[in-house]
């Protein structure tokens, strides 16, 4: 699953989106009056008693690892272990626990291993800063390389005969 939500860089755009959400709500309010009242009689019921809570559960458990599975999230796994923990999380959500409290609860029992989003601490500094260090290191190396390279290479002009031969060659290829 590919989602952008983990990026923090776009906070500003996030605000813009809230503005547009507001506009959208206005549009919805107006469009309700225009909606014809047709609805299917046999509308299927959502599986979850509380779809909003279920959505929150899925979003949270997608980033939690099922310990007994090879490499699956708690949301995706069909293992007993995952079902039990989902039930536990659901109960805690019903009891108005926040996502952070639930995560703390799980980490206290199973360790950081359950988190797909590794917490920022001393052992993960290299993990979180690694890409940045790589990027800065590579860019610096690149700049130094390009600078040094320019001073190292002198353009040796071709001799007159080489130049003519080269031109003839290029013309020949262009014709083909």
């Amino acid at each position: 699953m590919y989602k952008f939500k983990a990026i923090n860089v776009f906070v500003l755009q996030e605000r813009a989106s809230q503005f547009f959400k507001y506009i959208r709500q206005l549009v919805i309010v107006f469009s309700v009056f225009l909606l014809p009242l047709t609805s299917f009689a046999n509308e299927a019921l959502p599986v979850a008693e509380d779809p909003v809570l279920e959505k929150r559960l899925v979003e949270l458990s997608e980033n939690l690892r099922c310990l007994v599975c090879q490499n699956e999230s708690l949301a995706g796994s069909r293992a007993d272990f995952a079902i039990d923990l989902r039930r536990e999380i659901r109960e805690q959500m019903k009891a108005d626990k926040s996502d952070e409290e639930i995560i703390d609860f799980l980490v206290a029992r199973y360790g950081d291993f359950v988190l797909y989003n590794p917490p920022f601490k001393t052992t993960t500094i290299l993990l979180w800063f690694g890409p940045l260090i790589l990027f800065i290191g590579a860019t610096t190396a690149l700049i130094f390389y390009l600078r040094r390279r320019r001073t190292q290479i002198d353009d040796i002009p071709l001799s007159e005969s080489q130049r003519l031969e080269a031109e003839a060659l290029i013309r020949k290829i262009n014709k083909e």
């Binding site: 699953m1 590919y2 989602k3 952008f4 939500k5 983990a6 990026i7 923090n8 860089v9 980033n63 690892r65 999230s73 360790g111 950081d112 291993f113 359950v114 988190l115 797909y116 989003n117 590794p118 052992t123 993960t124 993990l127 890409p131 990027f135």
Partner: peptide, 23 residues
């Protein structure tokens, strides 16, 4: 981390997305 005896962690989609997209 495991080889250094510092415990077990998981690195999953949230990390890769946070790192890969800006690059």
């Amino acid at each position: 981390v495991d080889a250094l005896g510092l415990g077990k962690i998981s690195v999953g989609p949230p990390y890769f997305e946070a790192v890969f997209v800006p690059l």
